[in-house]
Design a protein around this nucleic acid. Structure first.
Lengths: 252, 252
DNA sequence: CCAATCGCTTGATGCAGGTCAATAGAATAA
DNA sequence: TTATTCTATTGACCTGCATCAAGCGATTGG
């Protein structure tokens, strides 16, 4: 069992240096979409005190696994993470992809145990936020408390959108919706909304959307033929956002 | 637009009387599974002060609709509620059924607007808990804060279970899982886990599970033939819980 | 460098569950 | 009570996606 990036910057280990992963919440360019969003400068410092940053995770490293004790939530600083659950018969269900600025492990609070696993899809940096400390800080910072509840509520809303997608939409609509979701999330981070590299495999996409690899692949091919998408392996270019939106047939 | 049971017990309206719906949180027999769960006696009184109880909702009355301003969450005291979203093309997606002791409207916190609608499936009584007041109270009662976060987290976990169900399980497995879920929730309220009346229609069940009415009906018939369930319209009797669990093929 | 493995694509076929249709039973209104 | 409407059941048929299978490009290790 690896130690989840605890105490990586203790004296004697890797020397502190100018690496990007040593930023504070105050300097972090994700502050505007992450936890600090709701806070004043001095309050950000108080948050910053409890946030722990470690050395980046390698591809396929876990942050936590289903069943692990829950002690902290995690914010993505760079890279992409995948959350998934394992069903009793051993199959995997991907429950979400997490990009920089997004928060993982909110499902662990209810039972004090992680109810899903989280794994890096590529080299990724994360911030660990001990839950006890966050809870106490929340009590004295109403805007943080509020913002945190909003984050949890948003997770619920997003899960419900996925539920709708899975129960009502065709393969094409599901894939289109995911591409639009990634596009939107890229915009928030001031990255290109039309040109990006998928960090997840076709298998992950299919698993997340309740489809097989083959179906995902066929949908991509079809969309390429229709000049809606250009697909070159993991490289995606959205050629016609409007058509894609029409295909997705879901709100916003 | 109806008023969501506000101020129903103001002087001059229906006289206060001995109706069951005038209980306090302290006396409520659902206290053990509802919000008061985490609290000491004197703290329950403080919670009780902010909880508003009104006259029961009739069947098909809404508590709130998608897009309404979010001001409060709601606890079910009796009856059954259904939460649903309307997709842009006008179709409905049922996102959950709510039984006594369960909390609705947690998805409204993120945007300060209800992101789903809630409607009574039968005559139901509910408690309205103004969110601002709950937030302030939470700040001074850590155990309440904790418990509330746990409730939200549980909603996330449950949504993720539904996601898995929808994307991985067959029609039979889905229906079996729902019957077991209702059975379990009945146990918590000390009602029969094997004999109950469905308050929702086949359409609602199908919608929730991503199936058509016809499929739901066929699955019920099949299960009846296999002596797993006895189905008489809305009246359900579980004859063989073990087989039902095997059919459901989902954890716990 | 080549070999081996893994991930992706494409085609052929089958089936679970959707769709359409008809009927029957329950609930509600007159 | 009967008429009307709503809900549930059952059957026949069809289709979108899964499954099975084969081949190919990309990545990794020796």
């Amino acid at each position: 069992m690896d130690n989840h990036l605890a105490a990586q910057d203790s004296p004697g280990s890797i020397p502190r240096c100018t690496h990007d992963y040593q930023v504070s919440c105050g300097n972090c360019r994700l502050a505007g979409i992450c936890l600090p969003l709701a806070l004043e400068t001095e309050d950000i410092d108080r948050l910053d005190d409890i946030v722990q940053r470690g050395k980046p995770l390698q591809k396929n490293e876990h942050i936590y696994r289903e069943g692990d004790a829950f002690n902290a939530i995690f914010a993505v600083r760079s890279g992409t993470l995948k959350a998934y659950k394992t069903t009793d018969d051993g199959r995997e269900q991907v429950t979400g992809f997490y990009f920089p600025g997004e928060i993982l492990a909110l499902d662990g609070i209810s039972e004090n145990v992680h109810s899903s696993s989280a794994i890096a899809l590529e080299t990724s940096a994360i911030c660990e936020i001990p839950f006890d400390a966050l809870e106490s800080l929340s009590s004295s910072l109403p805007s943080l408390q509020r913002h945190f509840l909003q984050l949890m509520s948003r997770e619920i809303t997003e899960d419900q959108q996925l539920i709708t997608l899975l129960s009502k939409n065709s393969a094409e609509e599901r894939v289109a919706a995911l591409m639009l979701s990634i596009s939107t999330r890229n915009s928030r981070r001031r990255l290109s909304p039309t040109h990006f590299r998928l960090s997840m495999s076709r298998l992950d996409i299919g698993n997340y959307l309740g489809l097989t690899v083959e179906t995902v692949s066929r949908v991509f091919s079809r969309m390429q033929k229709l000049n809606v998408l250009r697909v070159d392996n993991k490289e995606i270019e959205i050629l016609d956002t409007d058509s894609l939106r029409t295909m997705a047939n879901v709100g916003s």
